[in-house]
């Protein structure tokens, strides 16, 4: 018995967006399948939000095609729920009022709207704030309200731009679990520069940098195919750039090594057996080791491997 081919909900082909001479999005193509959480991972300025804005129709593409199974614009409007990076809400309406208002704008019957608004407020931990004007909410609450506003019309596709941005740790867990719970019934595209967020949530990840998609795969495959299993991070007190370069050239003979500031990132299989040798070589070269950390390969390592820079740089 063959595995059914997943249904493609959004197909993006050769998408480009330029602002004068700057190519913010440079000829990207990908498909998003029904029911999956698709992550766009990249540093600030990688082109994630521009891509999202083009998918939502808020920004015209310079070139390329976005296809929602050949649907018309009116249908697409009801199909998409958008939670922008910036909190966008009606400051003078209460949480409940604005959810009902937005629901009505999508032609949802009033009774259902009210029921859904209360349900979303409950699920996002805002039920006690239902009668509070949005402008009086805390930053984290505004973020959760923003997610609720994107969902009030029960869209099939949910687009979340940095959903965990500005959230405290408790809210982050709540939102993460909430997004995970939605994945059974909705297709979700989320952008983030937080590799942990994408790693935990996304079924597939597209790594973006300088407007291009560098790789698309599942987090598991990316972590296993890019990199070599273990990662050793050694923070040194750098004395001179030349001396550090000399050290790296020595270590490069045996290991895959990347320098990021004062951090030396070494990747290899079974690194635990090699830590002593590596640290001895560093000390013999006259460096002082500030901190040593051994861990498994992460999406951030994959990103560094692909781009040579860290996500937040």
């Amino acid at each position: 018995m063959s595995v059914p081919t997943p249904e493609t909900i959004i197909k993006i082909t050769g998408l480009k967006k330029s602002f004068k001479d700057l190519a913010a999005v440079d000829n990207i193509s990908f498909e998003v399948c029904k029911g999956e959480i698709f992550g766009l991972l990249g540093p600030n300025g990688a082109g994630k939000t521009t891509t999202i804005n083009m998918i939502c129709g808020l920004l015209p593409a310079s070139d390329g095609k976005i296809d929602f199974q050949s649907r018309e614009l009116k249908e697409i409007k009801s199909l998409i729920g958008y939670c922008p990076q910036e909190n966008i809400y009606f400051p003078k309406l209460t949480c409940f009022e604005q959810l009902v208002f937005m629901g009505n704008l999508y032609d949802i019957p009033s009774d259902r709207c009210r029921e859904r608004a209360m349900g979303l407020l409950e699920m996002l931990g805002l039920i006690n704030k239902s009668k509070v004007c949005a402008k009086n909410l805390s930053g984290g609450m505004k973020r959760r309200l923003n997610i609720a506003l994107a969902l009030i019309h029960d869209p099939g596709i949910l687009i979340l731009d940095e959903p965990e941005a500005g959230l405290d740790p408790q809210s982050r867990v709540l939102v993460r679990n909430f997004i995970k719970s939605l994945s059974k019934e909705k297709t979700i595209i989320l952008t983030s520069h937080n590799m942990d967020e994408v790693d935990r949530l996304a079924d597939r990840v597209a790594i973006m940098d300088y407007g291009k998609i560098m790789l698309i795969d599942t987090p598991y495959n990316l972590k296993n195919s890019i990199g070599e299993g273990d990662v050793l991070e050694i923070e040194i007190i750098e004395e001179s750039a030349d001396k550090t370069a000399a050290l790296i050239s020595v270590l490069k003979h045996e290991y895959n090594i990347i320098q990021s500031g004062n951090l030396l990132i070494i990747k290899a299989i079974h690194l635990i057996d090699k830590i002593h040798g590596i640290t001895s070589s560093i000390k013999e070269a006259g460096f002082t080791i500030k901190e040593t950390k051994l861990r498994e390969n992460t999406l951030e390592d994959v990103f560094i491997h692909l781009t040579g820079r860290m996500l937040r740089q």
């Binding site: 009116k74 910036e86 009606f90 937005m102 999508y106």
Partner: peptide
């Protein structure tokens, strides 16, 4: 100014 025009644009109004 509040950028809520984005929400209105995306809705069916």
């Amino acid at each position: 100014e509040n950028k809520t025009i984005i929400r209105l644009k995306l809705s069916r109004i």
